[in-house]
Amino acid sequence: MKTSFLSQKPLLFFTMLMPLFLFAQDFQGKAYYFSKSTMELGSFGATMSEAQKKQIQERLKNRLEKTYILTFNKEESTFKEDEKIDAISGATDSWGKNFSPGEQYKNIKTKTLLQRQEFYGKQFLIKDDLLSVNWKIGTETKKIGQYTCFRATASIPSSDLAWYDFSWDSLRNREQKKDSVGDAIIKDIKMTDVVAWYTPQVPLSQGPLEYWGLPGLILEINVGGTTILCSKIVMNPEEKSKIEAPDKGKIVSKQEYQEIISSKMQEMRDNRGRQSSRR
């Protein structure tokens, strides 16, 4: 049950904050997350039976449900997917992998993001600044496992949250922008509301994906039709992992990577169009 922070006893807050400020320099932890997304079928879904919808959801389960591991210390973290085998095809989702977040490294001291991305067999290393998030911290709390969490909200440009993804709508928007005369036309920036739940019991400014910047580890993120929830935290595991910044792949910025994706998908679309016209 959710309660107001103002109703919590001072002793609880003191107990939450005190222990983890005393971590040794080589402190490390691991957080395991489960991500689940809803599938929007739009007008197409209105013509389908419930059995057909369920069948599609089963076939796309690898894209709609994922597990991740966040390995962190005081300043750095790596975040990567724990890949599963598709129960139907017996393979990983190779098409979806082109538009999914790759292994990610965050350094909150230097505010640097490094992310590996594979796009149609080519390796890229995206190097950019950490996502700038203007969090609004609330007083509402809830329990996630044994951790008391506080609610925070933010409104973030949608394009900043899924720069590694692709949609035909985004390609059309880019083409319309190129067709405009000059830079006088400024379109409204689409924003996405994000709700985060963080715990001061783990006083590290880390979280899943690009989310960070709160006074505690983020254990839950709700954005659009996706929920990312922490299922387990392991503090100072016996077998420590080396947290290293990736260094392989063609170095590009987020914007450059988006341009590469759009250009490739436009090329594929044009090639299909030419092949169809020859038939």
Rank of each mutant, 00 (worst) to 15 (best):
T3D: 11
F5C: 08
L6A: 14
F14V: 15
M16L: 14
L17D: 14
A24N: 14
Q28I: 04
A31W: 01
K36P: 08
T47L: 13
T47D: 12
T47I: 14
A51I: 10
Q52P: 08
K54R: 13
K54M: 10
I56T: 07
Q57D: 12
N62F: 03
T71N: 00
T71H: 00
E76P: 01
S77H: 01
T78M: 00
T78D: 00
D82M: 04
D82I: 07
I85L: 08
G90E: 02
A91F: 13
F99Q: 03
F99S: 04
Y105G: 02
K106D: 05
I108N: 02
T110R: 03
T110F: 04
Q117A: 10
Q117V: 07
F119V: 03
F124W: 11
F124R: 02
F124G: 06
L125V: 06
D128E: 00
D128F: 04
D129M: 08
L130C: 07
V133S: 05
W135D: 07
G138L: 05
E140G: 01
T141C: 06
G145I: 04
R151I: 09
S155P: 05
I156R: 04
P157F: 03
S158D: 11
S159N: 12
L161V: 04
L161T: 05
R172I: 14
R174P: 08
E175T: 12
Q176H: 10
K177F: 10
G182Q: 02
D188C: 03
M191G: 05
T192F: 06
Y198G: 09
T199S: 10
Q201A: 07
G207M: 03
L209M: 11
E210S: 12
E210C: 08
Y211R: 08
L219M: 04
E220S: 04
V223F: 09
S231D: 12
N236C: 00
E239D: 10
K240P: 02
K242I: 13
E244L: 09
A245M: 06
K248T: 15
I251D: 06
V252W: 03
V252C: 02
S253G: 09
S253A: 02
S253Y: 02
K254Y: 01
Q255Y: 08
Q255I: 10
Q255R: 13
E256L: 07
Q258N: 08
Q266I: 15
Q266R: 13
N271G: 08
R274L: 11
Q275M: 11
